[in-house]
Nucleic acid binder design. Structure first.
Lengths: 296, 296
DNA sequence: GTCTAGCATTCTATAAAATTGAATTCTAGC
DNA sequence: GCTAGAATTCAATTTTATAGAATGCTAGAC
């Protein structure tokens, strides 16, 4: 059993077909067929059920899959661990929620780059759900996500505490004004794509305010969101630090919420790996050290 | 990075040389050299230091080794897990201390075989230290060892409680007679090879009795030990149940010890694996069910 | 019903790679 | 400076993986 067979198996399992797997692996169908056949012969039992629209895992295949994933992950980690001589360097893939990236990360990343210039850090923004999945499957080394997170394969450390506030156009200076000035069903809620934790929170709040069926408008970017709110297209929920500047220049109003809705903790998560990558360790060290400075 | 490379790497690391590794892997030196070179090229850093009498791991090699071992173990487990459809069958390798094998296991194994005839159980006896190592490296699926054991990768369940007794030739009916009748330095202690937990215990006891420098005589088998004691060659320490029959037929005397020295717990250990093998599960079930019967 | 599109499989030729065995190099210890 | 034990290099061979074309199978469309 070789790792290339394992990777082929995992690709077929994931894509649900030999043709699609072959495409993903940059090879031809016949090749994938043969590898799967060879693997099945070696294991001694079929791993897939063939039907005319693809392949699905048999019981044996289902039992094998988690091992395949773990082995693939281990082989990646192994190479990194061997190369890692303790000096932070090489690639480091960090993920973050859009809001955290906007206000919390710039000073942290600057400091990190100053201290460890040999690390090629890449930052990707996505929703909490996507980030957790990406960290688990190894495509990110660490990520800033909205807590709470509880997963056996992840360690989470508290990074920042945010206060969520409701953001509206400037003309609504208080919540009651907003209530009075909007239709019975409530203002449009401007939300991020699904998977975002703040979105779940605003759903709760809308219900609480008696606007369960208000319109939703989905946006992909933070700037777009603030822009739309400023244009009085609706309201949204964001960390106070994110909208502080926008409030300063008078484009929007912010409305404080009760702590039970407002409080949200940003966690830094990474895999509970056998080996701590120097680059990641360096990042965690920066985070810890800068904690007070950034929170202020 | 393929598993065959990983296995080659591990073999070289373990044997400390390409020639020996090649022999173990049933291939030729030049082949092993090439695989190691290819692996080093892929990782991008040397894994071994070459010197004229073999190879030793570099820092990078030392970091890679635990991953290599884990991957090798995972690939073994993966194939077993895929084949295991829930019906206990196939090979099951169990280890045991000599003493446990002699008195506790026969009824258990008989019952297990009656219930799961499709499992090809093999039993190997060794010292606790060797057994723990064998379970960890996967050459045994489970083992009966002397407690306490505390290892993150192992689960241990209490199997039997034994009472250790000092065993002497028949002529010494009491401990004080034995003391009086042996030279100042004490009787010869008959011990198992190193790694045996009972051996450590008898060392303590000899010291306590004022015989720290008594002679030691090392034997490999239980029957040999009892035979030598019967011939008054010395004394030894064994579970009461093991020597009960020998005492019955009058060949030896047994001497009760204070509970702090006498009590020892036999644990059944196995790896904390991702997948519970049916055969092993079946064995554990037998063990649990027979507990009361066997202990009686 | 037959046709067709989408897949998986089989087959053969080719390319890539692993393996072998012989020759070579290196070095610690005599 | 030999020699024995070890690793490396190199060319030939064998094995294995891959590609591409042809074939077979099945569900859904017509």
């Amino acid at each position: 059993m070789e790792l290339s067979d394992i990777r082929t198996f995992a690709a077929v399992a994931r894509t649900g077909g030999i043709t699609r797997a072959a495409e993903e692996l940059n090879t031809v169908q016949s090749n994938v067929t043969q590898r799967i056949k060879a693997l099945e012969a070696e294991i001694g039992t079929p791993l897939f059920e063939r039907h005319s629209r693809g392949m699905t895992l048999t019981g044996a295949g289902k039992r094998l899959l988690p091992y395949a994933q773990k082995m693939a992950a281990l082989s990646r980690e192994a190479a990194l661990a061997a190369r890692d001589d303790g000096e932070p360097k090489g690639p480091l893939a960090i993920g973050s929620m859009e809001t955290t990236a906007a206000v919390r990360l710039p000073p942290l990343l600057a400091d990190f780059h100053r201290r460890f210039p040999a690390v090629r850090l890449t930052l990707r923004t996505a929703t909490t759900a996507d980030l957790v999945a990406a960290v688990l499957d190894g495509s990110l080394d660490g990520a800033f996500v909205a807590g709470p997170i509880d997963h056996a394969d992840l360690t989470a450390t508290s990074a920042f505490r945010e206060e969520l506030v409701l953001v509206s156009a400037r003309r609504w200076t208080t919540l009651s004004e907003l209530r009075a000035g909007t239709p019975e069903s409530g203002p449009t809620a401007l939300v991020f794509r699904t998977g975002c934790t703040y979105r779940q929170r605003i759903e709760q709040i809308m219900t609480e305010f008696g606007w369960p069926s208000a319109a939703r408008f989905e946006l992909g970017t933070l700037d777009g969101m603030i822009g739309c709110v400023a244009a009085d297209m609706g309201v949204t929920l964001l960390p106070r630090a994110v909208v502080a500047r926008s409030e300063m220049n008078g484009s929007v109003s912010i409305h404080t919420l009760s702590p039970s809705y407002a409080r949200v903790e940003t966690l830094f998560i990474h895999r509970r790996a056998g080996h701590q990558y120097s680059a990641l360790q360096g990042f965690a060290a920066c985070l810890k050290q800068d904690e007070d400075v950034i929170a202020a």
